[in-house]
Design a protein around this nucleic acid. Structure first.
Lengths: 334, 334
DNA sequence: GTGAAAGCGCTAACAG
DNA sequence: CTGTTAGCGCTTTCAC
């Protein structure tokens, strides 16, 4: 068994209260006693039990982070940002993955609450869950922050990229380069895709060139398999539809899938087909040709989410904030 | 404040013990009382406080996972394996990153212990820490499992790939294809690199063709920047040393770096240069040309680590085990 | 300055 | 079957 405060107290011939005081340094203790206790603590290799401390103090020093999947290049960067921020605090992170499953997401959140976390950051929350009352309810008692989520609740803070303007940037850039027949590739069950599709539809309608068959939903969109799934799906489409001169991929993984599709079809990029991705994951700079994309600055997304959560925890979950980060078109070779 | 068991008891007009019994189902409760309590629990949205439960039960339902970094394709896969396994248990994961920093690793481990975790999995533990008495000491009181770590302690379980045979496979395959001048790329501070370098040295010595200048250490090796770092470093080397006909890269990121270096030098792969990586991260199948590599089966690595930890927790940290997974050469196009 | 004692939310004997 | 009670490891009044 691990050594407890009682054993330290005994060994030092003082009361547990005194030991507690030297550990926390919140009440005066005679220097001599203090040194004695400190020495014993060292000798016995005593570490205070944080669980017990949290319990009595009626506080929590853990926060939960919920993420659809960790096996891609996008979410880990966001988590990195969150981690770096909490590094300098007394909080530790419970990381949970949902595997893009709506019910698992709910289960995970409930687990976190049972573990009495001080707050929860949800990255890319499931759209249905957002629309149901689930999060509304949770957020009454536990501080919640969304990253890139659909958020109508007044008691949830959120940080997201301005995907509307990002998507607009993409399409306008394509227009400037005289593209009119633009394939749109999206995934499912995330608000991000909906936002971008809306922009796409609006803008294409404006120029009277909206074709339903140009809008492709390839299913789950943020795992590494997305690349090959996109390639397979789009080889057919690009091969049969010669009018398409550009592709707007909702994320870089899909963008890379398109690049690979072009290799299969012997299409030259960007001569035969222009490709623009979204996110600017590190991979986009490593593939050949380097992918043109929109920078989401994932790390910053994470950092801001962490800041918002701390704020919410400290203000007693009373008010919320929405942060919208701007993004930037990174023009590379596609 | 969250609702506690006392309030449920009051509302249901029973004692807290009874409420506890219906929650845990470990003692008989009259069906009628049970239903009444269950109903109240629902109404009040009561969730038991796991921290308090762990405290009284003198147990812990959390485990710690320590990983150098989450921002690459290797570690997340291992973590995925670990997560999937713990999914079906009552354990939750504390995930910590060390950013490849030896002292941070120690700090993180101490934090986990203060949080009273049931056990700790360390992925790619820092070599110096392994050689110091740090882990020896920790593992006396807390179950510890290493993934791909240097492990001499009798009280630490570990799972690793048979990197010796893996490395040998690589070099022998290169020999079979008549390569004799093989560049060896490694990183620092991980046992994995040492193992592979030893094999490389041994085998090259056997054929009397060991050149110190063929052994390149490019520093931290498992972040995405590794790709470009390798490219930069190796463009010079490959350009100035025309005898080199093959490269053995200690991981796939470095392998991809070599591929990109060849593009810069207009070298054809595999005609002008053969490249073999290590790990078989998902990326290796997505880059062009597809990278020949050794499959580490990261997911399995994680799963096995989780199994070992559970075993150790259940046997009271009394005995340990080492698992060595075989690996397989994946011959692709480089 | 320091100790005794109460209590955080929960479980597990022990009685009844 | 059910209630009473002690106590997990810790912090924090309240006396002295």
């Amino acid at each position: 068994m691990k050594v407890t405060i009682v054993e330290v107290a005994k060994a030092a011939n003082v009361s547990v209260a005194t030991v507690s005081r030297v550990i926390n340094g919140n009440y005066p203790v005679k220097e001599e006693t203090k040194q004695k206790v400190l020495k014993i603590i060292q000798e016995l290799e005593y570490t205070p039990n944080i669980q017990a401390r949290d319990l009595i103090k009626q506080q929590s020093s853990t926060v939960g982070v919920v993420v659809p999947s960790i096996n891609n290049m996008f979410f880990p960067s966001v988590v990195d940002g969150i981690e770096k921020y909490f590094d300098s605090t007394q909080y530790s992170l419970f990381l949970c993955t949902t595997n893009h499953d709506k019910d698992k997401e709910i289960a995970r959140i409930n687990e976190l609450i049972a573990r009495n976390v001080a707050g929860i950051i949800v990255i890319d929350p499931n759209l249905e869950n957002c629309k149901s009352k689930f999060y509304d309810n949770i957020s009454k008692s536990t501080p919640v922050v969304f990253v890139n989520g659909y958020n109508t609740s007044s008691n949830i803070s959120s940080v997201s990229n301005d995907e509307t303007s990002g998507a607009r940037m993409v399409i306008e850039y394509l227009f400037e380069n005289s593209h009119r027949d633009i394939l749109f590739i999206r995934g499912e069950k995330s608000y991000s895709y909906d936002v971008k599709e809306k922009v796409y539809r609006d803008v294409m309608s404006e120029i009277n060139n909206l074709h339903e068959e140009y809008i492709i939903n390839i299913g789950y969109g943020n795992s590494i398999e997305t690349v090959n799934k996109t390639t397979e799906e789009c080889v057919k489409i690009l091969d049969s539809n010669k009018k398409i001169s550009a592709v707007f991929a909702c994320n870089d993984l899909m963008g890379i899938g398109i690049i690979n599709a072009c290799k299969k079809l012997n299409k030259k990029i960007p001569e035969d087909l222009s490709v623009i991705g979204y996110d600017n994951i590190e991979l986009s700079e490593i593939v050949e040709p380097h992918l043109t994309t929109v920078d989401q600055n994932m790390f910053l997304l994470g950092e801001n989410a962490a800041t918002l959560l701390i704020e919410k925890i400290e203000n007693g979950n009373k008010y919320s904030k929405k942060i919208i980060l701007n993004n930037e078109l990174i023009i590379r070779n596609t």
